[in-house]
Amino acid sequence: MAERVDVRKTYKLYIGGKFPRSESGRSYEVYAAPTRAGASPKFLANASQGSRKDARDAVTAARGAQAGWAGATAYNRGQVLYRVAEVMEGRRAQFVEEVRASEGVSPSKADSLVSQAIDRWVWYAGWSDKLPQVLGGLNPVAGPFFNISAPEPSGVVAVLAPQESSLLGLVSVIAPAIVTGNSVVVVSSKERPLPAITLSECLATSDVPGGVVNIVTGDAVEIAPWLASHRDVNGIDLTGAAGLQGEAWGEWERAAADTLKRVIRPGGAGAAAIEPDWSVEPGLQRMSTFLETKTVWHPKGR
């Protein structure tokens, strides 16, 4: 019997809850990571090559969704994000295959990376209704005042997703930004975008409102300068600069300074950018960088 001709997927962007092609009409070829030297690269897909205009559309979508997402109860945001993990678990086989092909790791290693990614997502989901108590609280001022501090999201955050870790690294930069009520515009790994696209399908079929997460596949070197200088972006995570051909994270940080964006620098020391070890428990920094502390005073009296 002849082998069945499979139905292949068209890989597109994820903006405002929809899956458009790049407005530029461009796509680029994505290959599997070579598993041995000299092997001819295996074609995986034509991914959409996102443009400056796509990134701007994504910022508009993110801004439109942010207030509603931040205004949802923390319990609700936690449940919605937990739902994402449930859907990821259901798509485990697809993620394992894509991580294996993208990163050139063994099936068992890919399986472990997917497990860690789902567990990381669950870890962050649980923070939604705990972080305000951990980071905020009553301040004992010297006067007859009620005074309380609590964290609030910064707003719209641009995220350069890591180049190497296509799923674990990806969720480790998206989940901390959104669990607190920010919305994000993510530029995926350039060479390894497929898990990001599949994640966007999980987000679309969970209850994450459209526009809270927007994913643009393509080259961060092309797109990052526009996000760094965008006047309606409040923060930028430059983690994905590490390992990117032609990256200029110092330039991007300089552009971000014009609107005083909150910045996560890439890992490493000095000018060198190194991708972090995603296997360790991350701490709170990736959440707290994109949070603002608001302090409210009120007099006490009879």
């Binding site: 006067g143 005074n147 608001k294 005073w297 009120h298």
Partner: peptide
């Protein structure tokens, strides 16, 4: 900083 029914209050703990 949001001051409700007061303004320009400062404290080292705040």
């Amino acid at each position: 900083v949001v001051w409700a029914n007061t303004f320009n209050q400062f404290d080292p703990t705040s």
